[in-house]
């Protein structure tokens, strides 16, 4: 049972990281990233391939972060001037191109068979359940670091400019803010967090294949951000946890309805994800928490 809980918690943390990234890119900066699963895949594969080549885990993770930051910046550079829906199409197209590459460059990525046997970091220190708990600890630290990073960006003048650009880029640019540069940096900062998430994913599962990086990753992230309240990092954590609890809960559907076969149960879960996303948008588009706003202290109002 503890093993199962640990696994779910690590899973929640990885999703929360992806959600944090989307919360920066979309929540703060208003840039719709439908291709999250592509960036996530790049991070996972870079971390896995470098670790398998004998690079220490921390360096492998760093390489993954660098790779996603560069790619995110490039994608943003190409499309940041466009309206949100075009950005959505462009990022989705990027992710599909990544998927094609992963499936076809078998010599590098193992194609549809994926990469087995990714070395886990610090595997000599502990084993079994102890290792799982240690990995959970590492994941918590990573999440905490990324959360602080995202929160600092949000409350900084940088975050304020992002929100201004999101609301009205004409006004912001009239005030001398360079739209393109801010958007590219915001997208790259999100990419860095996705890089951390992808590395954790690779190291934890020690096996990756292209089916783990489908569009459902994007859907989870959007659900978490919308449920938590667009723009609020604390809300995002609550959102990510509740979404994952809901999704994990649907695993037990199969026990409730034994007449379904495994394939049907899996598709029913994905139907519920879709329905959940739509219901959130219709009934609770503002989420649990409000986004950060700089407020005057009491009595400070002149």
């Amino acid at each position: 049972m503890i093993g199962y809980l640990t696994a779910i918690l690590i899973f929640v943390i990885i999703s929360a990281l992806i959600g944090l990234a989307l919360n920066l890119q979309w929540g703060q900066a208003g840039m719709v990233n439908f291709g999250i699963f592509g960036f996530f895949a790049v991070a996972a594969y870079v971390a896995a391939l470098s670790a398998m080549a004998g690079v220490p885990a921390l360096v492998a993770a760093l390489l993954a972060v660098i790779a996603t930051v560069i790619l995110s910046a490039l994608v943003a550079l190409v499309s940041a001037r466009l309206r949100e829906d075009y950005l959505a199409i462009a990022t989705l197209a990027f992710a599909e191109a990544v998927r094609l590459f992963l499936l076809n460059e078998t010599w590098l990525t193992g194609g549809a068979n994926g990469l087995p046997g990714i070395p886990r970091p610090l595997s000599g220190v502990a084993s079994g359940l102890h290792y799982e708990l240690m990995f959970l600890g590492i994941s918590v630290v990573v999440l905490a670091l990324c959360f602080v990073f995202a929160q600092l960006l949000t409350v900084s003048p940088f975050g304020r400019v992002l929100r201004a650009l999101r609301e009205d880029d004409l006004v912001a640019s009239t005030l001398g803010k360079t739209t393109l540069s801010f958007r590219v940096r915001a997208f790259a900062a999100g990419g860095a967090i996705i890089g951390a998430a992808g590395s954790l994913h690779s190291f934890y599962f020690s096996y990756i294949d292209p089916t783990q990086f489908g569009a459902f990753v994007t859907a989870y992230a959007f659900m978490a951000v919308i449920a938590g309240g667009r723009g609020s990092n604390t809300g995002l954590l609550i959102g990510a946890v509740s979404v994952m609890v809901l999704l994990e809960g649907t695993r037990f559907l199969k026990d409730l309805m034994p007449f379904l076969d495994a394939g049907q149960a899996a598709s029913l879960r994905l139907i519920l994800i879709g329905v959940g996303l739509i219901l959130l948008l219709i009934y609770r588009p503002q989420g649990f928490m409000r986004e950060y706003r700089l407020q005057a202290k009491d009595g400070d109002v002149s």
């Binding site: 439908f34 859907a219 959007f222 996303l277 588009p285």
Partner: peptide
């Protein structure tokens, strides 16, 4: 706004494809 609608269409995508699988 149109971003909400396009995220909703992503949800519809999941529902329809998996109804087919189901």
């Amino acid at each position: 706004d149109h971003v909400t609608l396009l995220v909703a269409s992503m949800g519809v995508y999941f529902v329809l494809e998996n109804v087919v699988r189901f």
